[in-house]
Nucleic acid binder design. Structure first.
Length: 414
RNA sequence: GGAGGAGUAGCCUAGUGGUCUAAGGCGGCGCCCUGCUAAGGCGUUAGUCCCUUUGGGGGCUCGUGAGUUCGAAUCUCACCUCCUCCGCCA
């Protein structure tokens, strides 16, 4: 959520941002609703003041100057409605892009800012990860579709060991960097989900909503880590507060019918190790760059070729002010595909969640939030299988993961 | 799921229809006294919104929402959360 005061004072900037993000929000209507609300609020407060004056005098003098209870009630009701209407629209207003983010119309305007690693030269026709994984009995989507439907998968055997190796490797690396490990709830309240700003602009479509219990399944642990400090005031000394979370993630993939239908690249449920930080206003961009550097370090240590893409305005998403993706090389597709993403959400999430920090002078500010992928397990396993396949159909395990897999070097048929 | 209890400012707590415009303690902050494992004294210490001539004025918030009343922290109802016990359960 943006600051309504900021919108009142800078309507043109906000309109520009909506346009740049390709999100249709009627800012003029919002301001009109806001004015209406303020007018009603003033009248309501006036009547309440009158009520207080009346009830103060009454017990002493016994005479009651008249104020209309019905009138107050009417105004209170109208004020409440006007506020509700205004807030509904206010929540739709996206965060402003950071100054260094390029204006762009679509993902075609995203900018590749760095490419790392040599694409493997196999000397044979590389196979698709699913073919390899099925022949090695690592992934089973056929039976998963029997049990659960489309877009699900079983990870089996060494793929499972790989998952836990990746988790342990990420945890070890990030704990060394001062991150606190956490396993968060995968079900969160409607309030928490709203606070993270993922329900606006059709976001509701993307999430599993358990209406009977009024809970949402989280699409990423960002959604359960952010609200941890809802309505709290942290002190500046404890910032940045960094978490590394492991959780299953659930996504309806409603807007991606027909896209990546094969295998486990795009599924309704996957596990992810996620980084999250609460920072000061001054440090959030620095923290965001740091998150990107950690993501690169993790991928580099595995040895997967990748590139870094800086998102243009239209590809930022609602809460983000700035966003990078890491795309890993997928040989069978001859393409880089997204495996990591890191966003700086400035105070957009914190305002809604009411998370603040006290600076050295005791002054309170809204906190800034930064999130980023450490490993999206499924996609990382895909990249590993594809890039480290050998001619005989076996898979070489990256050195750094071997200690977590009892020294195993290779996944082979035997 | 059932029975009982509780929810008051950062934390702990007082409070039974109108001086509650919420007392006190702890913690924090400032100053004073002192002078070495310190102790004490004085003061200060919630958030949020609106208006403003920038002096200030006003509203709301005692878990949340409704109700009763001229007036609600206080009475009524519903809901939420936590605690205790019971039931079920990995």
């Amino acid at each position: 959520m943006l600051d309504i005061k900021f919108i009142r004072e800078n309507p043109e900037k906000v309109k520009e941002a909506c346009q740049a993000k390709k999100e249709e929000v009627d800012v003029d209507r919002l301001l009109k609703l806001d004015k209406k609300y303020l007018r009603l609020l003033q009248k309501t407060e006036e009547l309440r003041h009158k009520r207080r004056e009346v009830s103060k005098k009454l017990p002493k003098k016994g005479t009651a100057p008249k104020y209309s209870k019905e009138e107050l009630k009417k105004y209170e009701e109208e004020t409440r409605k006007a506020k509700e209407e205004r807030n509904k629209l206010l929540l739709e207003v996206p965060n402003l892009p950071a100054p260094d983010v390029k204006f762009g119309q679509s993902e075609l305007d995203n900018e590749v800012i760095r490419t790392w690693g040599k694409k493997p030269d196999f000397g044979f026709e590389p196979l698709d990860y699913l073919v390899l994984a099925e022949s090695l009995d690592l992934i089973d989507v056929k039976r998963a579709s029997k049990v659960s439907g489309t877009r699900f998968g079983y990870l089996k055997n060494e793929a499972v060991l790989l998952e836990f190796a990746l988790v342990n490797f990420a945890l070890a690396t990030l704990i060394k960097e001062g991150f606190q490990p956490v396993v968060p709830p995968a079900l969160i309240s409607e309030d928490s989900m709203l606070g993270m700003g993922y329900l606006a602009h059709g976001g509701e479509e993307e999430t599993y909503h358990l209406t009977r219990d009024r809970l949402y399944l989280t699409g990423t642990s960002e959604q359960s880590i952010g609200p941890m400090y809802k309505d709290e005031v942290l002190s500046e000394e404890e910032l940045p507060k960094r978490y590394v979370a492991f959780s299953s993630c659930f996504r309806r993939e409603a807007g991606s019918w027909g896209k990546d239908t094969k295998g486990i690249f795009r599924v309704h449920q996957f596990d992810k190790v996620e980084m999250f930080a609460f920072t000061t206003q001054e440090d959030s961009i620095k923290e965001h760059d740091y998150f990107l550097s950690l993501e690169e370090k993790l991928v580099r240590t595995l040895g997967i070729p990748y590139r870094v893409v800086k998102m243009c305005t239209s590809d930022l998403g609602n809460p983000a002010a700035r966003k990078f993706d890491i795309e890993c090389w997928i040989p069978s597709q001859g393409k880089y595909r997204e495996t990591h993403s890191t966003s700086c959400c400035t105070d957009y999430q914190a305002r809604r969640l009411n998370i603040k920090y006290k600076d050295k002078n005791g002054k309170k500010h809204l906190i800034h939030t930064v999130n980023g992928t450490a490993f999206a397990i499924g996609r990382t396993i895909i990249a590993l299988i594809e890039n480290f396949q050998e001619k005989d159909g076996s898979i070489l395990i990256p050195k750094v993961l071997r200690p977590y897999m009892e020294g195993k070097k290779k996944i082979t048929k035997e």
